[in-house]
Design a binder for these strands. Structure first.
Length: 581
RNA sequence: GCCCGAGUGGCGCAAUGGUAGCGCAACCGACCUGUAAUCGGUAGGCUAGCGGUUCGAAUCCGCUCUCGGGCUCCA
């Protein structure tokens, strides 16, 4: 209990420090640029930022200059003082600050807070530390453009990001986490481990899966298919292009236009590349009448879709223009919805646990301003989702108004090994498409009823999930996923034949085994296998060749010593089938 | 899309107006080695693309492409 109170006070303290650091930074910027216009300077995770409108662009060279001037102010230990002023007084004080004036106009109360330190005055509700000397550990990280109030129609300001903590040790720890994150960056590991590439010649945001990346993907996909079949799904496939009219019926042409690629002409008809798989599944559903007895129908597809994304938003595997959704559509009756959602949530969590994610954050997004269907139907579905969440006993938060126009949704984000969050599985109820396509089932009384449709993924997309997995495991995939599971390392050329025999035997067992045939020393081969993060290194020399054994080294550096090929097959086989290490 | 920054052999980097270098990888040869880099040699770049300034451009300027940090948006 006391610990919790301490924790809360600590959070408050560190937030004061961060907020104060942003004011000190603003003071420096003001001294450097007397004409600077100030935006906002809030506290964020691990630090702070401040937005400025400046006469010239900041460059990375400005960072150390601003940093050292901040240190001077901190050394002077200037007090932070606050006062309450009226709206009119505030307007007078900030007469030359258009962004502040805009903020003042939006404050509902007539009295507002002003904080000063040194020569800097800011509109601010506080709180701050009592004097600048309390800012013990900070570092400026980067500069970036940011629209005023996040609105791209408004001016672009210059933002400086900084980190700040209570102690130097915490700051250093944070900088280490950043460095560790850089080491795990899936874009870097993707190149080093020969997993995938992008090409200027092919176009941005288009992933090329190399053999090793494709192997990991195939293992995931095989597992995915098997798990779906276990849970009563059927696997389907649908084409990559369709006539534009299909997308007009679905509403995508009207409502999702900015993400669609231009139509192409095929025999005088316009076609577009699919941005989603749902219309295809609906067409298949509608090939005959469906009885209430055959619902729910669960159709899953690893469906590759293409969506136009603005050039500036592309990012490695996590934001691309062509990707494969691990999609499924559940067609069910209203009374089945809750059970179906429960099953989907349990399925999604099972998948996440299998891949080593133990922590998640679950968001329930409710009706946005623009929506299809009626308020009653939305409320009913939202309640159903909440009941399902309670049944699976998962903590969740409500994100009001963040649902898609066609229905409420549950998003699961994952916390990786470094504590960062990734968007993962999603479950969305859809009222729109069944209506637009007239998707029905024949009920007990032989009357056609609208079907309830659920879109869901349990991984998200193959690309994004793979990127997340790479960083989560830092490229050291557990044996069941590793593209090369065992590297056989002959000590001298005369051991090549035996190495090949071992490899053949392991491959016959389904193991992904290779021999390092290069004319290199054993140490070099071990180093390479180590850098490639291969789970098992099997060293073979005279001793092993004469006794049908292998010497097993793990990538942890641990030397397990000699064992028979059969003993190794058993050990590796069990680690792989249990999906451990 | 917008703001800022960057783009040099497969990869990592050097050369800031004066004939483009280094390491790793690759290739060839030698070595035959017991748990994270053996030695020697060879080859490879019209410096992302196009245009301009200059006697002379990797270097300065403009446009385009791609990448990175953000904003906005999303699987």
């Amino acid at each position: 209990m006391n610990k919790m109170v301490d924790q809360e006070q600590k959070i408050e303290k560190v937030e004061r420090i961060r907020h104060s650091a942003s004011h000190v930074m603003a003071e420096v910027v003001q001294s450097l640029f007397p004409d600077a216009k100030f935006g906002i300077g809030p506290v964020i995770d691990n630090g702070f930022y401040y937005d400025f409108d400046l006469p010239r662009s900041l460059t990375p060279d400005d960072i150390p200059i601003i940093e050292s001037k901040m240190a001077e102010i901190i050394a002077q230990n200037l007090p932070f003082t606050s006062e309450e002023v009226s709206r009119e007084e505030a307007k007078g004080t900030f007469a030359a600050q258009p962004y502040k004036l805009e903020l003042i106009d939006e404050i509902p109360e007539e009295q507002m807070g002003i904080y000063r330190q040194g020569s800097f005055i800011d509109l601010c509700r506080g709180p701050h530390v009592s004097s600048t000397g309390e800012i013990k550990a900070f570092k400026l990280l980067s500069i970036a453009g940011a629209y005023w109030r996040g609105d791209e129609k408004r001016p672009m300001l210059q933002r400086i990001y900084g980190a700040a903590f209570e102690t130097q040790g915490e700051l250093e720890h944070y900088m280490e986490v950043i460095a560790e994150a850089a080491k795990r960056d899936h874009r870097k590991l993707g190149q080093e481990l020969d997993l995938f590439s992008f090409h200027e010649e092919a176009g941005p945001g288009l992933v090329h899966w190399h053999p090793k990346g494709a192997t990991v993907r195939r293992v995931i996909e095989d597992f995915w298919v098997a798990e779906h079949i276990k849970r009563g799904y059927e696997i389907v496939n649908s084409p990559h292009i369709a006539k534009i009219d299909l997308w007009k019926t679905s509403g995508h042409w009207e409502l999702y236009r900015e993400n669609l690629y231009s139509p192409m002409d095929v025999d005088g008809q316009e076609y577009i590349i699919k941005p989603m798989n749902c219309p295809a599944h609906i067409l298949m559903y509608k090939t005959r009448l469906r009885s209430y007895r055959e619902l729910p129908i669960r159709w899953a597809e690893l469906g590759t879709v293409y969506r136009y994304e603005r050039s500036g938003v592309l990012h490695g595997l996590t934001r691309v223009r062509g990707f494969t959704q691990d999609d499924a559509h559940i067609f069910c009756r209203p009374d089945q919805l809750e059970d179906e959602v429960v099953d989907v949530l349990e399925f999604a969590i099972y998948m996440m646990r299998t891949f080593g994610f133990e922590e998640y954050k679950i968001m329930l997004s409710t009706r946005p301003e623009k929506y299809a269907g009626t308020i009653e139907i939305w409320e009913k579905a939202t309640e159903t989702l909440e009941r399902a969440l309670k049944r699976v006993d998962l903590a969740y938060e409500v994100d009001p108004g963040e649902g898609v126009f066609y229905g409420p949704k549950i998003d699961i984000s994952l916390r990786d090994a470094l504590g960062r969050t990734w968007q993962g599985p999603t479950t969305q109820v859809d009222f729109n498409l069944p209506q637009r396509f007239d998707v029905t089932y024949v009920d007990v009384d032989s009357v056609a009823q609208p079907v309830v449709m659920v879109h869901r993924t349990v991984l998200g997309s193959m690309e994004r999930f793979f990127g997340c997995l790479i960083e989560h495991y830092a490229g050291s995939f557990p044996a069941w996923l590793a593209p090369v599971q065992a590297m056989i390392i002959p000590i001298a050329d005369r051991h090549m034949d035996y190495a090949q025999e071992v490899a053949a035997e392991l491959r016959a067992d389904g193991l992904r085994a290779q021999v390092d045939m290069r004319a290199e020393r054993m140490n070099q081969k071990i180093r390479q296998a180590q850098l490639q993060k291969i789970p098992y290194m099997l060293i073979v020399g005279d001793n092993e060749a004469s006794s049908a054994e292998v010497s097993v080294r793990l990538r942890s550096g641990e030397d397990l010593g000699r064992q028979t090929i059969n003993a190794f097959r058993e050990m590796a086989g069990s680690a792989i089938s249990q999906k451990t290490t």
